[in-house]
Lab assay of single mutants.
Amino acid sequence: MDALKSAGRALIRSPSLAKQSWGGGGRHRKLPENWTDTRETLLEGMLFSLKYLGMTLVEQPKGEELSAAAIKRIVATAKASGKKLQKVTLKVSPRGIILTDNLTNQLIENVSIYRISYCTADKMHDKVFAYIAQSQHNQSLECHAFLCTKRKMAQAVTLTVAQAFKVAFEFWQVSKEEKEKRDKASQEGGDVLGARQDCTPPLKSLVATGNLLDLEETAKAPLSTVSANTTNMDEVPRPQALSGSSVVWELDDGLDEAFSRLAQSRTNPQVLDTGLTAQDMHYAQCLSPVDWDKPDSSGTEQDDLFSF
């Protein structure tokens, strides 16, 4: 819950932080000083300027060897085509990944977070970031790969997607708890209302004896509580940590079903599988986004697919 609360507080303090972009060759504004600060901008989305290598189908939802083989196929196909790589912007948030063309600003792909089953910074092609997700059109699994400016960037994108998945799962947990509370309150309110109706004398007997209905007592009954809980029953509950912020979080049926399955089948359902080692994760978390744009010590960066 700490990640969720800190993310909400950060967004309320400075929503404009989320509009910064990394990996864009110096076009961005001043960047936060450390990885923790940038992680807090996830709610509205972190932007990464990358190059799209392509996509291939895979048979399993996750796995280092599986993704490595898929990336190898994608890279080989991209090299064989001889075409310049498409420059894209990857927007990562707890909602998922939005992929747009840098030149036309046209939407290429919009992947809900619950469809993503794996992401990684490839070991062999260490400047490549990739994720595996279920197609929104059918049940097939797709591996999408992107060329980053350097290994640090690939690791940073991988960690960002993993963190977005974690925050999304926490949102789901909060929403589920809130819905259970509202359902319980609604049920209790309905029981109270039913009890009051059972003990209320029939209207005919009131008229016969000349008694008047006590409207004041009726007004004191917990009807307002019942209506408050039943009027918006169809509205999706939102985490309290975000009250007053500009973010509107809505959970669709697909996300609810997917996270429910994860909660039942996995020990740590909030953790998205990645190909990063503990050492890689520690190294990337210690980086400032400013470091992502620094040239690798191995030599001059080449803006070309064939540089790796």
Score class of each variant (00 low, 15 high):
residue 114 Y to E: 02
residue 203 L to P: 08
residue 168 A to F: 04
residue 279 Q to K: 10
residue 290 V to E: 01
residue 147 L to D: 03
residue 97 I to L: 12
residue 38 T to N: 14
residue 83 K to D: 06
residue 211 N to Y: 07
residue 269 P to G: 04
residue 290 V to Q: 07
residue 22 W to F: 15
residue 36 T to Q: 12
residue 57 L to T: 14
residue 282 H to R: 11
residue 87 K to D: 04
residue 189 G to V: 01
residue 62 K to T: 09
residue 77 T to L: 08
residue 17 L to R: 10
residue 118 Y to S: 02
residue 272 L to G: 03
residue 167 V to Q: 11
residue 234 D to W: 02
residue 25 G to R: 06
residue 207 V to E: 10
residue 94 P to K: 07
residue 119 C to Y: 02
residue 70 A to W: 05
residue 204 K to Q: 06
residue 177 E to A: 11
residue 127 K to W: 00
residue 296 D to M: 04
residue 266 R to Q: 11
residue 287 L to T: 06
residue 249 W to D: 04
residue 296 D to I: 03
residue 278 A to N: 09
residue 107 L to I: 05
residue 59 E to T: 10
residue 199 C to L: 06
residue 21 S to F: 07
residue 269 P to R: 03
residue 206 L to W: 09
residue 233 M to C: 09
residue 66 L to C: 08
residue 167 V to T: 13
residue 112 S to Q: 12
residue 254 G to M: 03
residue 237 P to F: 09
residue 164 A to P: 05
residue 225 T to K: 11
residue 44 E to K: 14
residue 39 R to F: 11
residue 131 Y to N: 00
residue 143 C to F: 14
residue 28 H to D: 15
residue 204 K to L: 04
residue 196 R to H: 07
residue 56 T to Q: 13
residue 64 E to R: 10
residue 30 K to F: 10
residue 191 D to N: 11
residue 283 Y to G: 09
residue 275 G to I: 03
residue 140 S to F: 08
residue 163 Q to H: 15
residue 62 K to A: 12
residue 242 L to V: 14
residue 76 A to I: 11
residue 126 D to P: 00
residue 205 S to K: 07
residue 26 G to P: 10
residue 220 K to Q: 07
residue 16 S to F: 01
residue 197 Q to L: 04
residue 251 L to T: 09
residue 283 Y to W: 10
residue 301 E to P: 08
residue 249 W to S: 07
residue 102 N to A: 01
residue 25 G to Y: 05
residue 185 A to Q: 07
residue 106 Q to C: 14
residue 241 A to K: 07
residue 160 T to R: 08
residue 51 K to V: 01
residue 303 D to T: 06
residue 7 A to Y: 13
residue 259 F to P: 05
residue 166 K to R: 12
residue 249 W to K: 10
residue 229 N to V: 04
residue 156 A to D: 07
residue 8 G to N: 12
residue 64 E to K: 06
residue 122 D to L: 00
residue 285 Q to H: 15
residue 290 V to N: 12
residue 193 L to D: 05
residue 209 T to S: 09
residue 165 F to V: 03
residue 124 M to T: 13
residue 190 G to E: 05
residue 126 D to M: 00
residue 139 Q to V: 11
residue 195 A to N: 03
residue 184 K to Y: 06
residue 126 D to R: 00
residue 285 Q to D: 04
residue 212 L to M: 09
residue 102 N to V: 15
residue 84 K to T: 14
residue 168 A to S: 09
residue 81 S to P: 01
residue 146 F to E: 00
residue 146 F to K: 00
residue 161 V to Q: 01
residue 261 R to Q: 06
residue 52 Y to A: 11
residue 185 A to M: 11
residue 305 L to K: 08
residue 267 T to P: 01
residue 95 R to A: 01
residue 173 Q to L: 13
residue 26 G to S: 15
residue 203 L to R: 08
residue 119 C to K: 01
residue 10 A to Y: 04
residue 266 R to N: 07
residue 40 E to P: 14
residue 37 D to I: 07
residue 21 S to N: 15
residue 207 V to T: 09
residue 130 A to F: 00
residue 194 G to R: 10
residue 208 A to W: 02
residue 145 A to Y: 00
residue 255 L to E: 07
residue 213 L to D: 04
residue 17 L to W: 13
residue 267 T to K: 07
residue 116 I to K: 00
residue 128 V to H: 00
residue 272 L to F: 01
residue 22 W to C: 13
residue 118 Y to C: 02
residue 25 G to W: 15
residue 250 E to F: 03
residue 126 D to S: 00
residue 250 E to D: 05
residue 307 S to Q: 07
residue 290 V to W: 02
residue 214 D to K: 14
residue 266 R to F: 05
residue 73 R to F: 09
residue 73 R to E: 10
residue 22 W to P: 11
residue 123 K to D: 05
residue 147 L to A: 02
residue 187 Q to S: 02
residue 88 V to R: 01
residue 178 E to Q: 07
residue 23 G to M: 12
residue 79 K to C: 01
residue 3 A to S: 13
residue 172 W to I: 02
residue 194 G to K: 06
residue 108 I to T: 14
residue 19 K to D: 09
residue 192 V to P: 07
residue 260 S to G: 10
residue 251 L to P: 14
residue 166 K to S: 09
residue 232 N to D: 09
residue 302 Q to F: 06
residue 127 K to G: 00
residue 184 K to N: 14
residue 197 Q to K: 08
residue 73 R to V: 13
residue 62 K to V: 10
residue 212 L to F: 04
residue 80 A to H: 12
residue 238 R to G: 07
residue 228 A to D: 07
residue 112 S to D: 05
residue 198 D to W: 03
residue 153 M to R: 07
residue 126 D to V: 00
residue 137 H to L: 12
residue 134 Q to F: 09
residue 99 L to K: 07
residue 43 L to N: 15
residue 172 W to F: 02
residue 170 E to I: 06
residue 56 T to L: 12
residue 65 E to N: 11
residue 234 D to L: 06
residue 176 K to P: 04
residue 152 K to V: 14
residue 305 L to E: 09
residue 186 S to N: 03
residue 196 R to V: 05
residue 282 H to K: 15
residue 236 V to Y: 06
residue 100 T to H: 09
residue 212 L to T: 03
residue 294 K to C: 10
residue 129 F to S: 04
residue 237 P to I: 04
residue 193 L to T: 02
residue 272 L to E: 03
residue 4 L to Y: 06
residue 272 L to H: 06
residue 277 T to K: 03
